[in-house]
Design a protein around this nucleic acid. Structure first.
Lengths: 259, 259
DNA sequence: TCTGCGACTAAACATAGATGAATTCCTGCC
DNA sequence: GGCAGGAATTCATCTATGTTTAGTCGCAGA
């Protein structure tokens, strides 16, 4: 924090990949070179890509929050993913001709656009980075599955609780959350769109959660006094985020207890 | 149908990839070689892979239906994807150490296991096949997103309607569905687990849909007398299946009207 | 200072869908 | 040919969540 270089595009991506692999000097230079393009900026609530368009490039979120969303003809909107700094969208390889969903910002966002070719070359020249990108993609799919479970089978408190836990871990993974809380920019309406509820019911549910001391949420800041309690109530299990692959692969994978 | 070779592992995969690319003689031989392993069989309702395990290999469904599912601690189950013949599961590249969901059969299934290395070599030697595998993966992610919308924002009729439409198109894409119907092996309980409903409510909803003539479903066979009507009622749009990429890429992409 | 807008809150009412239990219908199996 | 167990069906009841409406607050612009 504080130092300008820490919040650059390359270092943001490296922070994220750092959860999967150790990045060597050489690799870090290659990443910096690949992300040399200009950092672009977009205001809150604007589309970075729109359903139906041809995907132009791969987007790397540098700061701010964005989301993937789909709309039904009659206006119902579902946010299907939240994109945080360090997240790479649409590792498309030029395969799909048309976006089947939109990408929109939730807050003001800084981002860079990377061409598929540059990324492909990066992955080819540095296999470990290639694996890292692959890891990001697979984790995103895993998150998408978990979201399906979330809206399909969980109650309102559970849905919101799980989302809060997921975001805490993901933000911590890129150094953007404290021990037990983080800035939470979503409006209740957007929270509703992400959880498959209505804003009214989200409001009701947040009140309950506040009253029972599960969360504190005010002034766009969320804090979770007792993470274990929230995880238990929400039936949240962090496995699907695959945040510990590095340790596991490096052989010390024996440390797991119980399960 | 009928000829044995038509239902082999290689030809099943090629049927699927055929929606994305034209497969040359050379490529088809390479695919056949890569899938030379034995065809395995599993009964209905058994796990091919279980949450928590290390993924052994990539699975190619040759015949029968399977699914991905996740269970909550208290027993609630959500089916997050349906796997049909020609589908490749867990293009994992050896990156993730642990399955975050299970893969189970719905009917008796014949399948082959392919090692990541073999697939990687296949993709490296035949870039177009590599793209085809990439396409499969991206479409699966797109389907997953659509399922999130489905359970998050759609009503019971819409959810079931959309699922029926999706399966029709996907089965037609591998030559396993007729013009307006297909064998439908799921029980109402499983249908409920896939749509985020209860079996009782699925039953009610199916009655309604039958009575209004939208579908016929009996003897494990579904038929859709008026696909357009069902699509309209369910707010189904097939874009996310990306079944027309071949035409679109080959330049005649100008044929689209309206939109 | 006034006005308008969006976020949040709140309460009353409506309903889609869940729950639980009972009955019937198949289908495979002995 | 009878039986067992799962699947489908139906009913009655309940509740979590949606809908509607309205009020408050803070902030931005005129």
């Amino acid at each position: 924090m504080g130092q300008a270089s820490d919040t650059g595009a390359a270092s943001m991506l490296m922070r994220h990949l750092g959860n999967f692999m150790d990045v060597t000097e050489r690799e870090s230079e290659a990443i910096a070179a690949a992300l040399a393009g200009p950092v672009l900026a977009a205001g809150a609530r604007t589309d970075l890509m729109t359903e139906g368009e041809a995907p132009r490039a791969v987007l790397l979120i540098v700061s701010g929050w964005a989301c993937r969303y789909k709309m039904l003809e009659d206006g119902r909107r579902q946010i299907v993913a939240i994109l945080l700094p360090g997240d790479l969208c649409d590792l498309n390889n030029g395969v799909l001709a048309q976006m089947d969903h939109s990408i929109g910002t939730l807050t003001p966002v800084r981002y860079v656009e990377i061409s598929s070719e540059v990324l492909q070359r990066l992955a080819a020249d540095h296999p470990k980075i290639g694996q890292g990108l692959w890891w990001q993609l697979l984790v995103n799919v895993a998150i998408q599955r978990e979201w399906t479970v979330n809206v399909g089978r969980r109650s309102a408190v559970e849905r919101i609780g799980c989302l809060f836990c997921e975001l805490l871990l993901r933000l911590q993974a890129v150094g953007l959350a404290g021990e037990d809380g983080y800035p939470f920019p979503l409006t209740q309406t957007e929270l509703a769109e992400a959880t498959g509820l209505t804003s009214v019911h989200v409001n009701r549910t947040l009140q309950t959660m506040r009253n029972s001391g599960l969360i504190r949420l005010a002034d766009r800041t969320l804090s979770i006094p007792d993470l274990t309690a929230l995880q238990d109530i929400a039936l949240f299990s962090p496995d699907y985020l695959h945040l510990n692959e590095k340790e596991r692969r490096s052989g010390k994978g024996v440390t797991r207890l119980g399960t």
